[in-house]
Amino acid sequence: MAQVRVRFNGAPVARKLRAAAARGVFLGAEHVLGVSDDRVPLDEDALQRSGMASVDEATLTAMVSYNTPYAVRQHEELTWRHAPGRTAKYLENSLNEERAQVDAIIAAQIRRALR
């Protein structure tokens, strides 16, 4: 009977997978930002230019934000009029509608790391 000995180095694999997941989370956040940028209300496009995506690699948590004094009000005020294609809830709706795509982006990065 032949003997087979397998040695598994789990720590390096786990680090590689975590790095891939962090990259996927960041790319997912960038995707949501891009979709949101297409919907953000425009006046002088300062709001759109202030958008950014970031990731906390320790917790694998991403953040998409807009940094103007009126960003929250623009997002929440449902009674304001906007140019065609531009809406309130530009970030919330983008995230909710793109959830499956974000999952696919993260999964693709993890699959790529497993090759």
Rank of each mutant, 00 (worst) to 15 (best):
E57Q: 13
D37S: 10
M63E: 14
G10R: 13
T59C: 10
D37W: 05
Y90T: 00
R18A: 07
A20G: 09
G51K: 05
V40K: 01
P84F: 02
E98P: 04
A21L: 09
A113T: 04
Q109M: 06
Q48K: 13
V25L: 03
N9E: 14
Q109I: 03
K89N: 09
L27T: 08
A14W: 03
Q109V: 02
A20M: 11
W80K: 14
A58H: 06
R18I: 05
Q48M: 14
G28W: 03
L60A: 03
S50K: 04
V72S: 14
V13C: 06
Y70R: 15
I106R: 05
S65N: 06
D38W: 08
R5K: 12
P69N: 11
H31F: 05
N93W: 12
K16V: 08
E44W: 12
Q74Y: 07
H31V: 01
D37N: 10
Q3V: 14
R7G: 06
L17N: 02
P84Y: 02
D56N: 10
S54A: 10
M52N: 04
N9D: 12
V6P: 04
A20P: 07
E77S: 11
E77K: 15
V40D: 03
G85K: 01
P84H: 02
I106T: 06
A20F: 09
R81Y: 02
S94W: 10
R73I: 08
D103F: 08
L95V: 09
G10W: 05
P12K: 11
K16C: 06
A46F: 13
R49P: 01
L60Y: 04
L60M: 08
E30A: 07
D37T: 11
V72P: 02
Q3F: 08
D38S: 11
N9P: 01
G24Y: 00
E97Q: 15
T59M: 07
L91E: 02
W80Y: 12
M52P: 00
V4C: 04
V64Y: 03
V35N: 09
I105A: 07
A22F: 01
A53R: 02
L17Q: 05
G24H: 00
F26C: 01
E44Q: 10
A83R: 13
D43G: 13
M52K: 12
L95G: 13
A29Y: 07
N96P: 05
V6W: 08
A2N: 12
P69K: 08
D37I: 11
G85Y: 00
A53Q: 01
R111T: 15
T68A: 01
G85V: 00
Y70S: 14
L95N: 10
L91D: 04
V4R: 09
R86N: 01
L60S: 04
D37K: 15
M63R: 15
R115H: 07
S54H: 09
E30N: 15
T79K: 04
A46T: 10
A20R: 07
P12S: 14
A107G: 14
R115D: 13
A113Q: 03
A20I: 12
R39L: 06
R49G: 06
H75P: 08
A113H: 02
W80I: 13
D37V: 10
A62C: 03
D43P: 05
I106K: 03
Y66K: 01
Q3C: 06
A46Y: 05
T59G: 12
